[in-house]
Design a protein around this nucleic acid. Structure first.
Lengths: 188, 188
DNA sequence: GCATTCGATGTCAGTGACTGTCATCGCTAG
DNA sequence: CTAGCGATGACAGTCACTGACATCGAATGC
């Protein structure tokens, strides 16, 4: 494996989150992250495309899970109902990671570049969901609109979960957001 | 005014769009943009915060117009109906700018950094709309969800407009996107 | 007219993100 | 034991972006 210790990639992500939290994203240099992880700056950029990406290692996994759940829904389910299944699946993987999610979210919301990166990850998720819906026969622009709505619902539920007390779980908060959404879209 | 010619800011934006279109965003240096505009790199950064922002000079205007139209709606209008008024107002200012909008959109979609910047502008719009809706008595999370939906509708209509023939105008395409949205959200 | 003042620009040096290239380490197959 | 290979280190270079200070040009006051 590596030249020295294993899990270089994970060590870098951990060091980055710590440093971004301690002194802020902008005040942290990549060289400092690499040093805390026992590596060099050059190696950081072999594992992550840039200084922002180190906080988004799990986004591909989330997207894959969400999409798979939507695709696994009965073919005659309405777009919104297929998305509901995806929302459930995506919510479950966060179950025991709330402390980590909170630390990460605090860092991201504190910096515009990181917010931008988060938005493009969500846009990628939305694009993938729209493609999956089209594959199920949903025409455009309904597929894209439904996908965007699904992501918005997840985002709202997720943010409420971060602020909520420990006994409120993400799956339920996202479901609540979904029914709020349906009410608003119906003109309520 | 300026040391030489007037409208330095506009000249920079024009030069940037040209160069980004000719040789691509990444292959263009800020020094080249400034030179084409008859200025120096340092002056570029006095007018625009970074190399991406030069393509987004009008986003504040769009946000202001959209928000004002929503705020000017009768107090008893449902969130979706208030947003519909905002969508109409926002759509009108693009009426005679389709060639420019197409060139700009082609440049933005070709580069991930520029897509990120566009997304955060839309997120800012969404946040502003949500605040306006809250000011009209719409509670959270309905206000945020409705605002996200409104932005998604605008985005879909706008993209269709860019691809459409010259006789189809933005206002109508956005209205079509809105009714598609209502149908999908209702479970259609 | 002429000096003063002020905003916009130019100049220059510096930091840090990111990349290309090549050497080197340490494990593994044979 | 050695050859090969993947991961890392070392180093030089480009470019986005910033701070500090000089300078220009036009408006203003007299």
């Amino acid at each position: 494996m590596g030249r020295w210790e294993p899990n270089a990639r994970e060590r870098l992500a951990e060091a980055a989150l710590e440093l971004y939290g301690e002194r802020g994203y902008e005040q942290t240099t990549v060289a400092e992250i690499a040093k805390r992880a026992g590596l060099t700056e050059r190696t950081f950029f072999r594992h992550y495309a840039d200084k922002r990406e180190v906080l988004f290692g799990g986004s591909g996994e989330l997207e894959e899970l969400f999409v798979r759940a939507v695709a696994g829904t009965p073919a005659d389910a309405a777009p919104i109902e297929a998305l509901a299944a995806g929302l459930d699946a995506a919510s479950e993987i966060f179950a025991d990671r709330r402390p980590y999610a909170r630390a990460r979210h605090a860092v991201i919301t504190a910096n515009a570049e990181l917010r931008e990166r988060e938005l493009i990850k969500l846009a990628s998720l939305s694009t993938a969901l729209a493609g999956t819906l089209r594959g199920r026969g949903v025409p455009e622009p309904a597929a894209s609109l439904a996908a965007e709505a699904g992501v918005a619902v997840f985002k709202v539920g997720y943010e409420r979960w971060l602020e909520a007390s420990e006994d409120r779980d993400l799956v339920h908060l996202v479901r609540e957001a979904l029914s709020e959404f349906k009410a608003v879209a119906a003109g309520g």
